[in-house]
């Protein structure tokens, strides 16, 4: 369960580093453009959603194998964390 966390942290870390590098290059203006910042936000949200779906997906497959829920409910539960990404998309339009 925890094995994937370091990977996520690593990805976030390298992203932050590249942001800092860019900040040193550009003498004026914001470190990153608004669009790029939104992209980073959406990307992080997607990583989070993916991680959440991993656990839920495994549980849903288990429950489906035991016939204790319907496939529709299973799919619904699995994609619930996807709403995180949708909220993150809001950042693109403001």
């Amino acid at each position: 369960m925890i094995e994937t966390l370091p990977d996520v942290a690593l990805a976030a870390n390298s992203m932050a580093e590249s942001v800092v590098l860019q900040a040193e290059d550009g003498a004026s203006g914001p470190a990153i453009e608004q669009g790029a910042a939104a992209a980073i936000g959406i990307g992080l949200a997607a990583i989070g959603a993916g991680y959440a779906e991993r656990g839920i997906g495994a549980a849903v497959v288990g429950a489906l194998a035991e016939d204790s829920i319907s496939a529709g409910i299973g799919i619904l539960l699995t994609v619930l964390p996807e709403t995180l990404v949708i909220f993150a998309l809001v950042a693109l339009f403001v």
Partner: peptide, 14 residues
């Protein structure tokens, strides 16, 4: 990797 979610779902149903 360990998979407690899957085992849990099946076990609870049983």
């Amino acid at each position: 990797a360990s998979n407690p979610e899957y085992v849990n779902a099946r076990v609870r149903s049983r």
